[in-house]
Design a protein around this nucleic acid. Structure first.
Length: 431
RNA sequence: GGCCCUAUCGUCUAGCGGUUAGGACGGCGCCCUUUCACGGCGUAAACCCGGGUUCGAUUCCCGGUAGGGUCACCA
């Protein structure tokens, strides 16, 4: 075999389909994707599905679907389970070369003996260069003769990973820092197999507010939940990359294309980043602002209750994500008055207006008579005190202490509905 | 516990021997404004501790401390 295209970059991300993908899964894929793309190489998604009890096809589907939704691509898809023959070949090779041996041992789960395959540890110092962290040296002696196969036909993780990366020609292994401690073991296997050593780069985890590794079982929300809450994939990608990498200038907003151009693998962070929901929400708002009106409407449509589409422009600047919209419109919500007439009280009508009851009555009567047009109400309000006129008008329309200004409300409510509400407010004062 | 990694505002970070330690989110204040939101402006807020090296350390080295990871017949 001749080495083909020795310089071509090949990366991979290898999730195990044992649960729904979360943002950590996306970071893993994104980093590999970006590095491959910016180097004209290819990226492989390898489903590490060899754990028969925990692996589920539907999780594999979910991973593909959610990563695609985020805009992360892969050039090839592989399943580790389909490489069993190759794994067995390498186990045999290691056995034949004396780098591994069969050891009859008590099965871990209880009864019976089993012929496990142990790697013959050369007990040496392994030194490797991590692109992000520099040189790392480990004495492998305390790794002992670790098990690489349950039996001669059943490869375990370390063997399988090394074998697959070798077979697939992977040149760069970009993975989470949990892989850091596994690297020396895998290098030992590579050397015994005569496989080339890929370049390593380890990135840190997302952390919970308690500084724990965020994971499926620890605070990580599935990507699909973000989608259902109406987060924009662009915002999520931007958020993820900022947790792993920063440029050396002040730029913070990146498109995928921009990332492919600017991302630098050597600059990925060294320390874990606590998941910052507020920043994510901010980013999502930034990306919502970038949407053109028709795009906005399309993307928001599935979150908007029937018949309330027209309120979107009013709502959009007060939300972090699309799923906030129904929450604002539902009864008791911040903008429920758009959907149904509010209950109002005399006290609220007076509120911070600074006007007396009779003054308010007079002002409402004026509006009721002359109409709600800004051109007619505004001069009147300036003459009689803006707060004294505008506050009760606004409260009559919204029933809220805080809301958009009365003219905006009229615009969305319509002249007719507005007059009904104004009239109702006047009656409240009369009672 | 052994081994490995990490350590700058509350959070995400820039910095790569000499800086008023920069930016962003969040907070706070002011402006805009009848109120809210949006927007604009401004402000508080950090180099984990102790030794070295150096004329000079946030930056380099060592130690401590703290946090994380890993030590499976899971991946």
């Amino acid at each position: 075999m001749i080495i083909v295209m020795a310089d071509k970059v090949i990366t991979r991300f290898a999730p195990s389909p044992t649960g729904l993908p979360h943002l950590g899964t996306a970071m893993y894929a994104l980093l590999n994707f970006l590095f491959a793309r910016q180097n004209g190489g290819k990226v492989i998604m390898r489903s590490e599905d060899t754990d028969p009890v925990r692996s589920k096809p539907e999780y594999e589907e979910a991973i593909k679907e959610d990563l695609s939704w985020l805009g992360i691509e892969w050039d090839e898809f592989a399943r580790q389970s389909e490489y069993l023959e190759s794994h067995k070949k390498y186990i045999k090779q290691l056995l034949d070369s004396g780098n591994a041996y069969i050891s009859a041992e008590q099965a871990e789960n209880g009864e019976g003996m089993r012929d496990v395959v142990r790697f013959k540890n050369p007990n040496k110092i392994v030194t490797f260069n991590d692109l992000a962290r520099g040189e790392i040296s480990v004495d492998t002696t305390d790794l002992h003769d670790f098990v690489i196969a349950r039996d001669i036909d059943s490869p375990l993780y370390h063997l399988a990973v090394v074998a697959d990366d070798y077979d697939m020609g992977v040149t760069h292994i970009i993975r989470g820092e949990d892989g850091l401690a596994n690297t020396p073991r895998q290098i030992l296997i590579q050397e015994a197999l005569g496989a080339p050593r890929p370049i390593y780069a380890h990135y840190p985890f997302f952390l919970t507010p308690e500084r724990q590794k965020m994971g499926k079982r620890n605070g990580a929300m599935p990507i699909s939940d973000y989608r259902e809450q109406g987060y924009l994939p662009e915002a999520l990608i931007n958020f993820i990359i900022l947790m792993a990498w920063h440029p050396n200038d002040d730029q913070e907003l990146f498109t995928m294309q921009g990332l492919i151009e600017r991302f630098e693998l050597e600059r990925i962070g060294k320390s874990g980043a606590i998941f910052d929901q507020a920043k994510l929400d901010w980013l999502n708002r930034e990306y919502m602002k970038l949407l053109k009106p028709d795009e906005l409407e399309t993307k928001a449509s599935r979150f908007i209750p029937k018949g309330t589409e027209k309120f979107l422009p009013l709502l959009i600047e007060r939300i972090n994500k699309f799923s906030d919209i129904p929450r604002m419109l539902e009864s008791g919500g911040e903008f429920d008055f758009l959907v149904k007439a509010p209950g109002i009280s005399k006290e609220l009508l007076m509120g911070m207006s600074g006007a007396s009851e009779s003054e308010i009555k007079k002002h409402l009567a004026y509006i009721l008579e002359k109409g709600t047009e800004r051109d007619t109400v505004w001069p009147y309000a300036e003459e009689h005190g803006k707060g004294k006129v505008l506050w009760p008008m606004r409260v009559a329309l919204s029933g809220k202490e805080r809301s958009p200004d009365p003219f905006t409300l009229v615009q969305y409510l319509g002249e007719k509905e507005s007059m009904i509400r104004l009239e109702h407010a006047r009656k409240i004062l009369d009672s």
